[in-house]
């Protein structure tokens, strides 16, 4: 069953930055844009599994720190001529809290 869980407060994620969420066996990168929109992606670049959470956030993209692939935060897809996609998780901000929806098997995975 999927339900919304509060994971942190918005002010705990730096603007144009990210935090890593350890959820069972999965690392999820929680990003915050300049306009305070929050996105959640599996913390793994489709190229060579680089940690996207460590990249530079700009607009609604993040650039992977290993080989500069640019990943769209909303879709998880690589941009430009590069091809590949990483998982996207539903995330929302209510008041000053950030919520993530994650199913039980995803946590266990």
């Amino acid at each position: 069953m999927t339900e919304w869980t509060e994971i942190t407060k918005l002010d705990q994620i730096p603007r144009l930055g990210s935090r890593v969420l350890k959820a069972g066996g999965v690392d999820i990168a929680i990003f915050r844009t300049a306009k305070d929109t929050v996105f959640a992606l599996k913390d793994q670049c489709p190229h060579k599994q680089g940690p996207l959470s460590q990249g530079i956030v700009h607009g609604t993209s993040v650039t992977c720190p290993l080989h500069n692939w640019k990943i769209d935060l909303a879709s998880g897809e690589a941009q430009g001529p590069d091809k590949g996609c990483t998982n996207v998780y539903p995330v929302k901000v209510e008041g000053d809290s950030v919520y993530l929806a994650l199913s039980a098997d995803e946590v266990a995975a």
Partner: peptide, 11 residues
């Protein structure tokens, strides 16, 4: 501190 501390999923 936030840079080096991961969030934990408590759900």
């Amino acid at each position: 501190r936030n840079e080096f501390t991961p969030l934990r999923f408590a759900g």
